[in-house]
Every structure is written in C-alpha cells, then in structure tokens.
Write a protein that binds this DNA or RNA. Structure first.
Lengths: 226, 226
DNA sequence: CAAAAACCGTCACAGTTGTTACACCCGGCA
DNA sequence: TGCCGGGTGTAACAACTGTGACGGTTTTTG
C-alpha cells in the first residue's frame, strides 16, 4: 500500500511513516479498489467502517423511495467518507456512495478506528479537527439557510468572502448557478437580487467580481436588523 | 468534586469512578462556579477549553455588532458546552454563554482533553458519539431547512414524529408557535398550511394531536416528488 | 476552429409566505 | 372573580420567490 499518499492527507498529516506502518500492520488494514459504478456504501446503511479515498472520486446520491435522485455531492480523493457519521447512535449513511471512476480506498472497521485513534495523539487530534471543521461548515450553512431573504443570504455570504479574501472586492468561488443552489434558491431569483442590490448602490457586480460599496448597509442586512 | 454527577453524564458514562478520579487527578482538573450573569465564554472567542456544566444552566446569546440579541439557546446541566467547536481550525464560540443561575462547571484546557481522550477508550467513544449525535441533529435540521415549502417541512416532521412515536397519531412536542420558529417560518403561515392539509384530507389536527390520514401523499411530499 | 455545453442576464406570471390585525380560549394569580 | 399572558385560529394584503422561457455570452472540447 502506498503510505506516502496517506501521509499527505489531513487525517494522517504529521505522522511518521514508520508510525503509520506500525498502526496499519497491527490493525490489519487493507486497501480496496472499486471500479466505476461500484457502490461503496448504501444509503441508510449503518456506518460501521471508515472509508478513506486514496485515488479517484465518489458520487454521493440521495435516492428517494420513488427512485428519483434528490441531492448530489461529489467527494474527491484523498478524503474521508462520512467521517462525521461514523460514531453516534443510529448513524447511517445519508447518501449512497458510488465510484465515479476507478477508485482506491482503505476501509477500516469502526472498532479499529477507535483503537487507531487511541494509539496516536496526533492522529486523534487530526480526526477531531476534521470532524470539527466539517461540523463548522454544516453549522455555517445552517445559519445561512435560516436567513429569510435572498438579500440577507447574499449579504452574509459576501461579507464572509470579503473577510476571508481580505478585500472589499471579492471573487465568487463558484458560478452563480452553483451559488444559487448553495443558497437553496432559484437562479433567476438570485440574479434579480444581485441586480437590485446593484441598482441600490450596495454592491457593484461584474462577472465573478463583486465589490462591496455600502458595507454598513450590508452589515445591517446580515444582522437581520433590516 | 462530585464525581458521581459526572458519571451520569453521557461523556463519562460507563467509566469507573476510580478511573475518572485517576484521570482528573493527573490532569489537575478543577471545578469552577459562576454566579448568575457571569460570562462563561465570549462570542467569537477561540474555543481553547471544554466546559462541562455540572449544575445550573447557561444562556447562549448571539449578539450582533449593533448590540441586539439575535438567537437564544439554553443549555441545562449536566451537559458539555460547544463540544463540536472545541477542535478544528478557526474554531470560535458561536454565541456568548452567560450563567442563568448559580452554575458549577469543570473547565478542561484543550490539550488536556486530548490527553484525557487518549487515556481511556470508553471516554473517547463517548466523546465521538456525542459529537456525532450533535452533528446528526445539525444535519437533520439542515435538511429540514433546505426544503422549499412549509408543506414539505410539515410532512417530513410529522413522518419523523410518527416513526419515533410508533403511531400514525402523534403528539406535537412543542407548542405550534415554537414549531413555527423551529421551521423558520411565521406562525400564521404554519397554521394556514395545517388547515389546508386538513381540508385536503392529508391529516387531522386537533390541539397538539395530529393524525396522519394519507401517509402515501405525505411521503411523496417529503421526497420532494411533489 | 467550430460545435456543444455551460453560464449569464432578463422577463412576465403564478404561487407561497410574511405581516398585521382581530377574536377566542384557557390557566395562573391577585 | 376578573385581569392578565401565552397559545390558538383566521383573514386580507403586500412582499418575496419560483417557474418557464428566451437570447446572448463564455468556456470546453473534439
């Protein structure tokens, strides 16, 4: 197994190769490969193992009882799968995971994960950090979704980007259609709101570049004061 | 310090008292008391310690730059504070935590938490389970908030309650006004939707009792097929 | 380089939701 | 008993958002 790839992943970052080898040997961890279209995990199946993607990518689909696909999420290697749902009571995969291409992964049974985390404090910290970051994103998105109007969501998101990029002029990270989907709103509605805010002089938007013109007003919007 | 209280909390459940004592002695964990109104944690302050409530309760407030209070959440002892945000990068308290009454808590610095979790596998599993359950709730609520219409939210929520209570007739856990707030919608809008669904024969609602009459239709709604 | 695909901006219209307001019921409490 | 306060049911109207559609632009890709 190629340990050097693993050492570059967030989960095993900072570990010595020898240490990792020791752990994997003791836990009898093995590598599995999936061909395109193969299913790594079924929706609603209990999560009893940790799946770590080494190469390739996986498609997460939420299929309804009626058979229609609801939500899709793509996960690229190297990355863990459903790390947040490995523990807890009544923990099941929220989506069905299917290989989008030839994909290599290591699969570690839940009890072994526990042992592994006990064996190395760095590993434990990495695991906790990854979980927490995931949870933070979840929490942030929940906050966003809790906002009433598209205007507010835009305000919050733009201020966040501005803070993150350290400039009043921000570059949108995704196409606007994807942004609309992220907000959970229709694309034309998002466009309309951008147009309005521009007409009102709150922002200036050209292509993927958006400049914040009236920060105080945006802040008020984000606060829900308005 | 009263360890027997702690042993009943989810985090320390299943541990021997002697074991817990050993851990706390080694980590030099101490108990702190807060008077009513004292601040346990500031909003946006980096989370560098785990706060475990022993007795009393805490009020979580999200204050805006303008000084207005936005969201409130209450946490009763015994319970950990912001357990999900202890790790991760750029992890800060999402709310300001203020004691609502005389409150006792133990505060464990982040490095000590890591050591503690390394020392005992049961403790580690408890911690991971608690985090995961929290994340699951978060995820579930996010799903709910992602639904477009109030009708869908109601369908999902009712089906969930029905499954949980094991009966087609469910008892609402909160007053309808609180339910509306949980959904993030206006109360009259929720009432209207309940009325409509009753007129259409999907449910029968009287007071806090709601009976599911047309489960297939509700399921379709929940799937987003409709 | 040309065709295909993805993205963008905009519109009219329909549907859903929020707002505000009023009446009612019920339990606690002086 | 009579005055609250919280929770409930309902209504009219305004505001916001989604839908479906169209033409134009940019990017990808063979």
């Amino acid at each position: 197994m190629n340990l050097s790839i693993l050492l570059k992943t967030p989960l095993f970052h900072g570990l010595e190769e020898s240490e990792l080898e020791r752990i994997f040997t003791e836990l009898k961890v093995t590598e599995t490969t999936f061909r395109k279209g193969e299913v790594l995990a079924l929706q609603d199946e209990p999560v009893n193992r940790l799946i770590l993607l080494l190469t390739g990518s996986v498609k997460g689909e939420m299929t309804d009882p009626s058979g229609k696909v609801a939500k899709v999420e793509d996960i690229e290697a190297p990355s863990p799968l459903a790390i947040l749902f490995l523990f807890g009571h009544d923990n099941r995969f929220p989506v069905q995971a299917t290989a989008r291409e030839q994909t290599a992964a290591i699969v570690i049974p839940k009890p072994s994960v526990l042992r592994m985390l006990s064996m190395n404090e760095t590993l434990l910290k990495n695991y906790l950090d990854i979980s927490a970051d995931f949870a933070t994103r979840l929490s942030r998105k929940l906050n966003l979704m809790s906002l009433r109007t598209i205007r507010q969501k835009l305000a919050v998101h733009l201020l966040g980007l501005s803070k993150q990029q350290g400039s009043p002029t921000v570059t949108l990270d995704k196409p606007k259609s994807a942004l609309a989907e992220y907000f959970g709103v229709a694309r034309p509605s998002l466009e309309r709101e951008i147009t309005r805010m521009q007409e009102e002089g709150l922002i200036r938007a050209q292509q993927k570049q958006v400049t914040i013109l009236d920060r105080p007003a945006l802040t008020l919007l984000a606060d829900g004061t308005l």
